[in-house]
Amino acid sequence: MTIAIDISHLNKSFPVGDDVVPVLHDISAQVRLGELTMLVGPSGCGKTTLISILSGILSASSGDVSVIGKSILKFSDREKVLFRRENIGFIFQQYNLLPALTAAENAALPLLAAGVAKKQALQKAVDVLSEIGMQAHTEKLPRQLSGGQQQRIAIARALVHNPRLIVCDEPTAALDAKTGQGVMEILRDVANDQTRAVLVVTHDSRIYRFADRILEMSDGRIVGDHLPDNFVHKE
């Protein structure tokens, strides 16, 4: 099994006034292709900071992070943007869809940003939307769709450019249990593809069963690497 993310002795501190507040402490972990990995822990434990660094959005104070074989912390800002565009798909808690764009246009955004012609990008977006059961809603605006449907558009947006890594931030937090389960089933299918890794940050214990592995964080440290059954029993 190939490694999607390799984190080695990662530290991150933020300056607050004259002080420096450490947020991540000597984190080392791996996320593998073909797996759905969950990152769990209480609020403020550093989950968001960690996925921001793994996504090339934040820089680290020290350590190394390799994503799909590339040491991204050495990239310039522009290289990080281009790397994200090509290799990472994002799913956010609040969907972050552009309200003026249709479902297909929203889903096509990463392709359009990469310079793919509008017609081809939209066709590809419609194909991906159809694969996740949204073929009837491709021309609808986000406000015309339910929360679950909007999150499916966000999933299509994350998958449309065939990224190797899907980063999901609380993908079910704004959804009811049934809808959240539907979203996780889609992500589970995505993770079954051996060329992709899915990393999910969540508080939602109802979805732990969809994980292959659960990384537990506390106070800026990885304190556990669990199989889901073991972790549910622990909880």
């Binding site: 996504s55 565009r85 990472i88 994002f90 609040q94 972050n96 955004l109 990463p110 940003a113 947006r157």
Partner: peptide, 16 residues
């Protein structure tokens, strides 16, 4: 801003 931030995260460059 949130929409611009989402676009930047997705890979839209400052030049775009």
């Amino acid at each position: 801003l949130k929409q611009f931030a989402a676009m930047k995260a997705i890979g839209v460059t400052n030049a775009q």
